[in-house]
């Protein structure tokens, strides 16, 4: 991850706090708007951020999301402290969900979260350790012509 830093900001996400859920993502969106980033990039980033934030709220004890904006890209790093994901391949499958009824009552848990984050990212990496937590790296290039796998 190279490039001159334009902006870097971290957000604390509290697990189980549905009242605050999504506030970090709304702030990220507002920051990108203020920077004059292209609306389609903002939208993709906002969706990826919101899905990732909701995953932390729903499954983890707590997490931290760091937004970095460089002249080339929007980079999001998420690290949570939680149960982790035993089978990442399965978790990436559309429609696969371990959501509780409470999570579904909040409007989430359709099993679309992780696939949707990947869909909206140019680069997406996920790693997880059961009993410790999950880490996500998300990159969205500011120039849409730049692709992850040319």
């Amino acid at each position: 991850m190279s490039g001159e830093n334009v902006l870097s900001q971290s957000f604390e996400i509290i697990g189980g706090n549905f009242g605050r859920a999504g506030k970090a993502s709304t702030t990220v969106k507002d920051i990108l708007k203020e920077l004059g980033i292209d609306p389609s990039i903002i939208r993709r980033t906002a969706i990826a951020t919101y899905e990732a934030e909701m995953n932390v709220v729903m499954y983890a004890e707590k997490g931290e999301m760091t937004l970095r904006v460089t002249p080339e890209m929007v980079h999001l790093h998420l690290q949570d402290q939680g149960p982790g994901i035993p089978d990442i391949k399965l978790a990436m499958k559309e429609g696969y969900s371990t959501a509780t009824p409470e999570m579904r009552e909040m409007g989430f848990g359709a099993g679309m979260g992780l696939p949707n984050i990947k869909k909206n990212s140019d680069l997406f990496e996920i790693s997880s350790e059961v009993g410790k937590g999950t880490r996500l790296e998300i990159v969205i290039y500011l120039n849409p012509k730049v692709k992850a796998n040319p």
Partner: peptide, 14 residues
């Protein structure tokens, strides 16, 4: 869905 997440989703999605 009448909780705040419905509005937040609408905002995120434009």
């Amino acid at each position: 869905l009448s909780n705040a997440q419905s509005v937040r989703t609408a905002d995120i999605l434009e």
